[in-house]
């Protein structure tokens, strides 16, 4: 299975897209998580948020809903929405592999978020396609003899992680 790789160039592009989405949708927080629960990027008021836990729970939530979808014969539920007293969470699947999460309150509305997400999703899809292409190119380069930065990890490196 191919690892998921994020390069600096695309990371900046992703941050730009979700930063714009946050402003356009008048959201509090926008973040992107991969389907395994790893956070990719986030924008907004993150101080009070445990983003690592949010990422893992979001992925669990999407995985459970995906399971539900398959049980009733659907491919997936591309959008999930949780409505709270003050804050709401809108979750959209991008390119079948990453999850876009928008947290918003009464300063915005479901309609506005939905509208802005559509545009952002297209931009994000383009970026993820470009990442995929880069990973493939990288792999080919490696076959031609360029080593990955991890090729030289030694036993010593690993043991040093576990020294008390």
């Amino acid at each position: 299975m191919t690892d998921f790789v994020l390069f600096d160039e695309e990371f900046q592009q992703i941050k730009e897209v979700i930063g714009r989405l946050k402003a356009d949708a008048q959201a509090k927080v926008v973040f992107i998580v991969d389907k395994n629960g790893q956070q990719i990027a986030a924008q907004g008021d993150l101080e009070s948020l445990d983003t690592t836990s949010l990422a893992s729970l979001t992925a669990g939530n999407v995985a459970a809903t995906d399971g539900l979808a398959k049980l009733i014969g659907e491919k997936e539920f591309p959008v999930l929405f949780h409505e709270g007293e003050k804050d709401n969470v809108y979750i959209a699947i991008v390119d079948q592999r990453v999850i876009l999460v928008i947290i918003f309150d009464e300063h915005s509305s479901l309609g506005l978020v939905r509208l802005r997400v559509r545009k952002a999703t297209q931009d994000l899809e383009r970026i993820f396609v470009s990442i995929q292409r880069k990973v493939e190119e990288e792999k080919e380069r490696r076959h031609e003899g360029v080593d990955s930065p991890f090729a030289e990890i030694t036993d010593e490196d690993i043991d040093s992680l576990f020294r008390e």
Binding site: M1, E10, Q38, I40
Partner: peptide
């Protein structure tokens, strides 16, 4: 599936 983040210089693994 390891997540290698060159931007944040992080490797994320799932056990």
């Amino acid at each position: 599936m390891t997540f290698i983040n060159y931007a944040a210089r992080e490797i994320n693994c799932k056990i």
